[in-house]
Design a binder for these strands. Sequence first.
DNA 1: TCGTCAATTACCCTTTTGGGTGATTTTTAA
DNA 2: TTAAAAATCACCCAAAAGGGTAATTGACGA
Lengths: 212, 212
Amino acid sequence: MATSLLIFEDNNQLRQSLQLLLNDGMFFSVKAAFENCLRAAEEVLLHEPDLVIMDIDMPGRSGVEGLKAIKAVRPATKIIMFTVFDDDEQIFECICAGADGYLLKHTPPARLMAALQEAMEGGSPMSPQVANKIFHYFRQASKPAPDYNLSEREKEILQLLIKGNGYKMIAAECFISLDTVKKHLKNIYTKLHVSCGTEAVAKALKEKIVAV
Amino acid sequence: MATSLLIFEDNNQLRQSLQLLLNDGMFFSVKAAFENCLRAAEEVLLHEPDLVIMDIDMPGRSGVEGLKAIKAVRPATKIIMFTVFDDDEQIFECICAGADGYLLKHTPPARLMAALQEAMEGGSPMSPQVANKIFHYFRQASKPAPDYNLSEREKEILQLLIKGNGYKMIAAECFISLDTVKKHLKNIYTKLHVSCGTEAVAKALKEKIVAV
DNA sequence: TCGTCAATTACCCTTTTGGGTGATTTTTAA
DNA sequence: TTAAAAATCACCCAAAAGGGTAATTGACGA
């Protein structure tokens, strides 16, 4: 059984090329192709395709919105984003919105077909440049947490504060006196250069000083 | 010029298979292969390989540590993780630590060689299962922020609280009386089901109720 | 061995927080 | 137009937070 496709792509030449390529009478069958995704959700409900190829930069309504609209009405539809853009924001927005793959337009035909196949098998195909962006994203996100020279005990108490405990509860949890808790928090505030508990909590969470 | 390789893999059979496969006299050249990565950094400095294939589950010292050690002394070395594990934590830790690719051991030889080539060209090859985990990670991370029915004003005041402002400062910033600020915060705490400011800040940041 | 530092406790004091109740006005939705 | 929701302000009051100072103990390294 061939995989049925819908194509949303505003470039006439490219859209027709895709149709020719993917109407191979074997593995793929193009149900319809459109030059914009204004009626993306409706067309998907009408044709019930296995997979959608979605350009991003289209007049009227962006492919990202088309993606969201389709996933909202028929989540099982696989959607491969197909674009010249490798803008970081765009990539992450699409992935978060449920895209099943992200391919750049210079992908060679054989690789494109392999990627569509991979998506149908539950994979998440992406172009190497996209994979690179994702790897970079993670490295960026894991920049070393600044060290404010908090002692273990101080980290423990800060942790309890973040959990929503008052001074008294922290004292009870740690089996120490209320005054000791206050003393520790005073030191913590000084070390973090903050003036109160809420600010300390905000800073600790933002800068990942403690485990969440 | 063939790509020079080092291999760290504790399974004898697999290690020898990799050597046979990759000593093809054309594209790849295996400089040496080891059954543990205790001396990973030293061997890399000695052999100066273009690329390292690193198993994760090895006796004595895990491949993740080997990865970090190598990247610490010779960051230009490409490192492909090669493992049976597709544990989420492991994957993300490796990516953050600078891995250039992440392949599962059942990768077919042709795909493995293509992946090594891709890594040498600056790509970030990964097995489909790994790509899937990454896509899932992003979707997870962007799960819809729970709506606690906070009004705009309440969000604004919560935001100021997170910034470390006391009640008085919030009142001044918003040009409203201290009592109004108190009233708003009381309502906020009720809506968020928390009992104090620190807990509200923690919840707001953890659940991304407000922009950071 | 001595000095330093973390952890602990205590006491004093003021300000801030947070909860309760109630009321007015404005905006929004039905 | 009327009702509900949001925003505003006020007053009372107890508890909590936060800052200062000082002292003791134990561990660890110079």
